[in-house]
């Protein structure tokens, strides 16, 4: 009996590790890209995408696991970015020390927004986070010299690692890939922990979760705070990469883009944020679209994904693969449909 239990546990750990493997392989391939001497434009685009992906991993904990959608997530990235810029300007705080400080700042903001909004539940949260994004942009724009108003702030500090200057584009790219890897592993660890199970329980049925001893309100706020930590780190990387930040980068449009990326990629699976972030960053480039065209394409993509692939692109691919190999999931979806109709 005990032996069986141990085997069970070993089995589930093995299964969990196997789910991480594809992401690690893809990230290893991505890390090898500089060997093929890519253009600077490609590297810049990839760095921006990677910085987004870090925030997307946080958003996937919130949306994919807990079932709560934030429409103001770029604002939490903004809190991190401005924290980094202000800390550097006023206190001479460098890149590495700014990381935990900015993560903390974004987490605190998430808690301040989350406590009142998550108590009222569901759709209110979407609206509250959206309003928070707008509000932050207004505050930053009217913050005078302290926030640099509409022009924003410059950040000219060097990023060094073990004495090496990381500002060079290829090095910064590799560093961002390392951060993306950490974000993916962190999100994987959350998904496969008892904490992740708790969040999924809340996503599936709040009333039942509460009746089983889960403090639903506190865990929802907690998930938002966790997603804020990812956003804060993403903000620091962004500020140091661009060297200049301004309020419009963190207003409603970027927030909608983040939500769109996580939905297109698929929020529940570990590959989703990576796929969504890369796709949305590179699609206009590959298809040679202008900004207006690309917005239209994104809109169409989003509608198509919501209607055809509720688990996002990656979820759809996984399901298609399973269908191809086992040939029986059709029945499962029918049964699930029946069960849902019953509720």
């Amino acid at each position: 009996m005990k032996e069986g239990l141990r085997q069970d546990r070993a089995g589930s750990v093995f299964k969990a590790l196997r789910s991480l493997l594809p992401v690690l392989v893809i990230l290893a391939l991505i890390a090898a890209v500089p060997l093929f001497s890519p253009s600077n434009r490609f590297l810049s685009l990839a760095i921006s995408a990677g910085i987004n992906v870090i925030a997307l991993y946080g958003l996937s904990v919130l949306f994919g696991q807990t079932g709560i959608l934030s429409m103001g997530h770029a604002a939490l990235v903004g809190v991190g970015a401005y924290a980094a810029a202000i800390l550097a300007r006023d206190f001479g705080v460098g890149f590495w020390a700014a990381l935990p400080a900015a993560a903390l700042a974004s987490a605190v903001f998430a808690m301040i927004v989350g406590i009142p909004s998550l108590r009222v539940g569901g759709h209110h949260f979407v609206i509250m986070t959206f309003a928070f994004g707008q509000l932050l942009a207004i505050v930053l724009t009217n913050g005078g010299d302290y926030t640099g108003a509409a022009t924003g702030l410059d950040l000219a500090g060097p990023v060094t690692l073990f004495g090496a200057d990381m500002s060079d584009l290829t090095r910064y790219y590799l560093m961002v890939v390392a951060f993306v890897t950490s974000a993916a592993v962190a999100s994987w660890a959350i998904i496969n922990s008892s904490y992740g199970r708790t969040l999924r329980a809340i996503r599936e049925n709040e009333k039942l979760a509460a009746s089983l001893g889960i403090n639903v309100g506190r865990h929802k706020i907690g998930a938002f705070v966790v997603s804020g930590i990812f956003a804060g780190i993403s903000g620091v990387l962004l500020a140091y990469f661009l060297g200049h930040i301004s309020p419009s980068q963190f207003s409603s449009f970027p927030s909608i883009y983040l939500a769109l990326m996580v939905m297109i990629g698929g929020a529940r699976l570990i590959e989703g944020p990576l796929a969504g972030g890369i796709l949305v960053a590179f699609l206009p480039e590959v298809l040679n679209l202008d900004p207006v065209q690309s917005r239209i394409v994104y809109g169409v993509c989003l509608i198509a994904v919501i209607m055809l692939l509720p688990d996002g692109l990656i979820g759809g691919i996984v399901r298609a693969l399973r269908a191809a190999f086992s040939g029986k999931p059709k029945q499962e979806t029918q049964q699930r449909g029946a069960a849902e109709a019953q509720r």
Partner: peptide, 20 residues
């Protein structure tokens, strides 16, 4: 009621993880 999208065993695991 159950957590419809989760496994049957996972359902029961969750239920046992918040006991004081």
């Amino acid at each position: 009621m159950a957590f419809a999208g989760l496994g049957v065993l996972e359902n029961v695991q969750i239920a046992g993880e918040h006991v004081r």
